[in-house]
Amino acid sequence: MIADLGNEKRALRAELRQRRRTRTTTERDADSAALTATLQRFAEERQVTSLALYLSASDEPNVRPFLNWAFAHDIRVLLPVTREDGLLDWAVGDGERDRGDLRHARGRRRGPVPDRHQRRRRDPRPAAAVGHDGVRMGWGRGYYDKTLGSMAKRPPVYAVIFDAEYLDEVPREPHDEPVDGIITPSRIITFRS
Rank of each mutant, 00 (worst) to 15 (best):
P112L: 07
P114G: 07
P114K: 14
P114M: 05
D115E: 12
D115C: 06
R116W: 02
R116K: 14
H117S: 12
H117V: 14
H117W: 10
H117G: 15
Q118L: 08
Q118K: 11
R119E: 06
R119C: 02
R119T: 05
R119S: 04
R120Q: 15
R120W: 10
R120C: 14
R122W: 06
R122E: 13
R122G: 10
R122N: 08
D123F: 11
D123E: 15
D123Y: 14
D123G: 10
P124C: 11
P124W: 09
P124E: 01
P124S: 06
P124L: 07
P124D: 10
P124H: 06
P124F: 13
R125C: 09
R125G: 12
R125L: 15
P126V: 14
P126G: 15
P126H: 11
P126M: 06
A127I: 05
A127V: 03
A127N: 00
A127G: 05
A127R: 00
A128G: 03
A128Q: 01
A128K: 04
A128C: 13
A128Y: 03
A128D: 07
A129N: 04
A129G: 09
V130A: 06
V130T: 02
V130R: 00
V130E: 00
G131D: 09
G131E: 07
G131T: 11
G131F: 01
H132D: 11
H132I: 12
H132W: 14
H132P: 08
D133Q: 10
D133S: 12
D133F: 14
G134E: 07
G134D: 12
G134K: 05
G134A: 02
G134N: 10
V135G: 03
V135I: 09
V135Y: 11
V135N: 15
R136G: 02
R136A: 01
R136V: 08
R136H: 03
M137T: 07
G138Y: 07
G138S: 10
G138H: 11
G138E: 06
G138K: 01
W139K: 03
W139G: 00
G140K: 07
G140C: 05
R141V: 04
R141D: 12
R141H: 15
R141K: 15
R141Y: 13
G142Y: 12
G142C: 08
G142W: 03
G142F: 05
Y143D: 02
Y143L: 00
Y144M: 03
Y144G: 05
D145A: 08
D145R: 13
D145N: 07
K146W: 13
K146M: 15
K146S: 09
K146I: 08
K146G: 06
T147F: 01
L148R: 04
L148V: 05
L148K: 00
L148I: 07
L148Y: 02
L148D: 03
G149F: 10
G149C: 02
S150M: 06
S150T: 13
